[in-house]
Nucleic acid binder design. Structure first.
Lengths: 345, 345
DNA sequence: CGACAATATTTACGTGTGTAAAAGGGAGGA
DNA sequence: TCCTCCCTTTTACACACGTAAATATTGTCG
């Protein structure tokens, strides 16, 4: 059943009796070739095995039809959801996507960016690591190809287009909700490495002050072994609960993964977070991690609109690629968060 | 601060006064060039911006130094964990990885395989969708390049190397544990689409018979809207609990994501799975999904050794690439599962 | 049957780098 | 000073396909 394998378009040309330039056009877009010829070519392709060489194809084209995407973590469903949205949008636009994960390592992130440049991708979509990202590499990236940041916006790259969530709005929203329905929350943060985390913390502080409450941030001094969010949330609250602290407070976690750890800590101490008639422990998160509805108790949170972010990032990139951008000012697009009221707060 | 951009190695050659072939050798491996010349080149590279063209580099090499990896889902931490392990192992071996996700769509999976072939990757690692995978494409893949299957082994590809878990062992292990410590479990399965699921079901049945118990499989007839595992687990048990069934049985779920839904259903009905002194509801899973320790109750499960699977898959691929394989019989490597005893069973 | 338009083919060159063979140059030893 | 040896340079061709221009073919219509 093995068909004879043909390596080059030249050979294919002689094998099925169609000139090579015509074949070239056919493989780029069959509609550029007369239907009858298309039929002849496809018939020939039935009898032999041939796939155009990816590299040779891209080498001498003005456009490679590819975009590069970098995400910081793979083991985080938020980013995989975002990536999925990006891939779907890109596919709809007829682009193929090259995905790289930086695995929390700036040097890997930098290498991925280098690879994209050497591949002449039409553009790049990057969810950066943040502070630690290699600035020089990103400056070159920006000067070389269309480039849009997603999710997190390092201060070192103020002149790059950005698509993300409005954390002032989203965190303000849930902070306001928590204040309105119960006791003003404390904010369970991370050691300060992440821009979004800082922005959310600032939003929390601002909203608390606006409501006339005293903000209170915890957890910034706790460093756990693995550094995973869940472990952090659990460690901070486990320590607090063990000392009898915070057991009937409202706790707003910097993100859902921290909240997952927080809920776990509560359970270990026999506490069930939720909005009771007379106060008690409440726990809320941020992001709407896909598993939130399945936690016990299910997690009240603010959803980031990952779908919109992915779509917008791709469409913005296409705009830049298409040269439809005149101004030199970066476009910043922020989507609102939406409250997801569940059991935990 | 912008250095002059140089596009071709030829231009670079005249710009820094080193011959092009020498530069070519330098970019492939600096140790092929005399240290003093290396220093001169690197000094020149400080003054100009140049990256070798990815496509031109790969076009005429015997080896591209790249491997392709296909995973079926992105929104599943099991696969992202596996992917992470593969990427690390590949990086250690000096290979660069091209990742594609088939998003549960056989046609996307097939396209990814085609892409790998057209890129002349040195080899491919595939966690297949299963039944629905395009056999013809994989036959060509196998005939064209080194190719190792991971995680799931479709019956249609018996002659391909495989690395995965021994589900007879792992599922047998937890089935035996459940039988030994409490009541014999029922098996909460999925509509039958997945090879691993079928294998686990068979392992469950076999172990139950061996222990002298009557196997009982549920959930194969329930189809939920989204098709997500968690939703499935919750739907099946919610229906059962609503009718007062299964409330004090042991339930072995086909995987942890189903178990997450199962635990959620239990919580909604006021049930807390766990090994009590006098029986009661127990829920167990399979895979050791990263969030298992943080569920309430934390989930008892069998861990798949994703790290070993990823490493072995890469090393096996390297063996085939290196031509160290003589026999025509496929190598099947199965790693044992390990019991993770937590609260839920 | 002839002329025109739409396609296809031919021809030729470009894309940026790998690679092999032959020729060149400098350092070290006799 | 000459002669190796080792590395670099020169030269030339290969890789598989894109693309443009000129030419040939085909089909169609009057």
């Amino acid at each position: 059943m093995l068909k004879p394998r043909i390596k080059t378009m030249e050979e294919l040309s002689v094998a099925i009796g169609i000139s090579r330039p015509t074949l070239s056009r056919f493989f780029q877009d069959p509609s550029l070739v007369k239907p009858k010829t298309v039929a002849r070519i496809e018939e020939g392709l039935e009898r032999v095995e041939y796939v155009p060489n990816f590299f040779a194809t891209r080498l001498n084209r003005k456009s490679t039809g590819m975009i590069g995407v970098i995400i910081p973590y793979l083991n985080d469903l938020f980013f995989t959801k975002l990536l999925e949205s990006v891939e779907v949008a890109a596919m709809d636009a007829g682009l193929s996507v090259i995905t790289k994960c930086s695995h929390s390592d700036p040097s890997i992130e930098a290498r991925a960016a280098e690879t994209f440049m050497s591949m002449n991708v039409d553009g790049a979509l990057v969810a950066p690591l943040g502070d630690h990202s290699d600035q020089a590499v990103y400056q070159r990236l920006k000067s070389r190809l269309p480039f849009v940041l997603m999710d997190s916006r390092p201060k070192t790259m103020p002149d790059v287009d950005f698509v993300g969530s409005d954390h002032m709005q989203s965190t303000g929203l849930i902070t306001e909700y928590l204040c309105r329905v119960g006791e003003p929350p404390v904010f369970l943060a991370m050691p300060r490495v992440n821009f979004n985390a800082l922005e959310r913390e600032a939003a929390y502080v601002a909203q608390m002050k606006k409501q006339g409450f005293q903000p209170e941030v915890i957890g910034t001094d706790v460093v756990t072994e693995s550094g995973y969010f869940e472990e952090h949330g659990e460690a901070v609250l486990d320590a607090a609960f063990a000392q009898g602290r915070l057991t009937n407070r409202s706790i707003l976690c910097v993100n859902d993964r921290v909240a997952i750890g927080a809920i776990r800590a509560a359970a270990r101490h026999g506490l069930t977070p939720g909005r009771g008639p007379n106060g008690g422990l409440r726990i809320a998160g941020h992001d709407d991690y896909p598993l939130c509805p399945y936690l016990n108790p299910s997690l009240t949170t603010v959803a980031q609109n990952t779908d919109a972010i992915g779509k917008k990032a791709v469409s913005r990139l296409l705009q830049i690629i298409g040269g439809e951008v005149v101004k030199d000012v970066p476009e910043i697009t922020l989507f609102d968060g939406h409250l997801k009221l569940r059991e935990s707060a």
